[in-house]
């Protein structure tokens, strides 16, 4: 039985050397879209938790925790958005 030597024939799972292009990489816009999706999801969860609390099938603390989670997710997204806009404006002010 022969042992196959390890050479370059094995393709790496992620090619680290080449910079990620728009096709295979995740752009900043994509992560922002995901964050907004998370805000939307947590907002809907908070809504349904409050509705459950009001119709008597849910606990008060569950509704309040869902509200807090939605608020924190929203604040997180706002901070990321602020950083993005700040970076954009700084690049726009750059003299060329």
């Amino acid at each position: 039985m022969s042992i196959v030597p390890v050479d370059g024939s094995i393709t790496p799972v992620v090619d680290i050397a080449t910079p990620s292009s728009k096709e295979n990489g995740v752009g900043f816009g994509d992560s922002l879209t995901r964050l907004i999706g998370a805000v939307d999801t947590s907002g809907q969860e908070a809504n349904s938790a409050v509705a459950r609390m009001l119709d008597g099938s849910g606990d008060v603390h569950d509704a309040m925790i869902a509200l807090q989670r939605a608020e924190l997710t929203f604040q997180m997204t706002m901070q990321v958005r602020n950083k993005l806009v700040q970076a954009y404006q700084e690049i726009m002010r750059m003299p060329v």
Binding site: H61, I65, Q68, L72, Q75, Q79, N82, K83
Partner: peptide, 20 residues
């Protein structure tokens, strides 16, 4: 336990302040 939840929430909120 309510106090514990409030504490963790404040910690997360203060972590978000880091980016200011």
């Amino acid at each position: 336990n309510l106090a514990a939840i409030g504490l963790v929430r404040d910690l997360i909120r203060q972590s978000l302040e880091l980016s200011r």
